[in-house]
Simulated scan of single mutants.
Amino acid sequence: MSNKVILVVLDGLNYQVARDCMGYLNGLLEQQRATLYPIQCELPSMSRPLYECILTGVRPVESGIVNNNIVRLSKHDSIFSLAKSQGKVTAAAAYHWVSELYNRAPFDAPRDRFTNDKSLNIQHGCFYHWDHYPDEALFLDAEHLRRTYQPDFLLIHPMNIDDLGHKFGLDSRQYRNSARAADIYLSNYIEQWLCDGYQVIITSDHGMNNDLSHGGILPEEREVPFFVIGERFTHQDCHINQTDICGIVCQLLGLEHHKPYSQELLAL
């Protein structure tokens, strides 16, 4: 069985928009080649706190990363640190806050934008600091990392869905069309990822509201998708918490860890 994982975090993607607009992923669902679970994100429903939650399994109120303006390294074991310490290869094409949480803070673009350092938790990275950085380019960055370094764990984190939500709101054609565009980009890669032995998880940190923001407890801000694609998943009905994602990935990678995870989701 394969023990490599690609985790795609589509920033700001609301569950219902994923369900309604992402035709390729829904096509996989109809053919029973993927399963979609609803997840309720932790609070506050903000980006940096939830990157930390997804990648460490620790709730924001416990991690201390409780808003987007806290710029420091994580104080908890992450997928990256656990994988790196156990001899796995790690990579990320992601927003620069991920680099600040797990590699070096504050972000220094000339030093950190392109990372290739086996001593760091994220050994190979392409990090960006523009919210409008094209998702299409970000997926190319990720695929370059994957083909070049063949990571055991690859994080892919595009920002355009969130960016257009902040500009136009949840109930806008721009926001919905950005989700459709991400679906098209994913359709260009997923089959090859599976052929190359990766288990694929696609989720989001938080949703979006019609105030052009997020951060609170509205269902549209908290309900996010969790797609799983690959032979290592049972594809059975089960409940998944956002705090389970770190442990699920650690299990798939075959890591020793003490993170919570949903046993029902994973095949033996």
Rank of each mutant, 00 (worst) to 15 (best):
G207K: 08
H166P: 11
F226G: 08
I217S: 14
E52C: 10
L252V: 04
R72A: 01
M22W: 05
I240L: 11
L164P: 01
G215M: 05
Y175D: 01
H157Q: 07
P219F: 08
H76R: 13
A92Y: 01
L25D: 03
V17F: 03
E52Q: 07
G27P: 09
H166K: 00
Q123Y: 10
E264H: 13
Q174G: 11
Y95L: 10
G207A: 11
I122N: 04
L170I: 08
S119Y: 11
H132I: 15
S47E: 05
G87N: 01
A182H: 09
H96G: 10
Y15C: 02
Q199P: 05
D20N: 14
E30F: 09
A109R: 14
W193K: 05
I201H: 10
Y149Q: 02
D20Y: 09
V98L: 09
L55T: 03
N209D: 01
I248R: 06
R222W: 01
A109N: 12
P44V: 00
G125E: 07
L252W: 03
T203R: 00
L101P: 11
A91L: 12
Y51Q: 08
L140H: 15
D237G: 13
D11P: 04
E136R: 13
Y189S: 07
A137H: 15
A92F: 01
D141T: 05
F226C: 02
L140M: 15
R72V: 06
V8F: 10
N188S: 14
H166N: 01
N177G: 13
R146G: 15
H76M: 11
R232C: 13
A34Y: 04
Q263M: 09
T56D: 02
N177K: 13
T203E: 05
F226T: 05
D183E: 05
N14D: 14
E136S: 15
N67P: 06
C238L: 02
D112L: 09
L253W: 04
K118T: 14
L120M: 12
D152M: 00
E231K: 14
S74P: 02
L28D: 07
S47W: 06
V200A: 08
S213H: 09
L255P: 04
A91Y: 09
N68W: 01
L101E: 06
L140T: 15
M1N: 06
G169S: 02
H96K: 13
P158E: 08
L13V: 03
H214D: 11
Y51K: 05
M46H: 10
V249N: 07
A92N: 03
L265F: 13
I248M: 12
C250P: 00
F107K: 04
G215V: 00
N210H: 00
G169H: 04
F233K: 03
A34W: 06
G27D: 02
L138D: 15
A137D: 15
D108F: 14
I39H: 03
K88R: 12
D162C: 00
G125S: 08
S213E: 10
L155W: 07
I79R: 00
F226D: 06
L120R: 13
F107V: 08
I6R: 02
F168C: 04
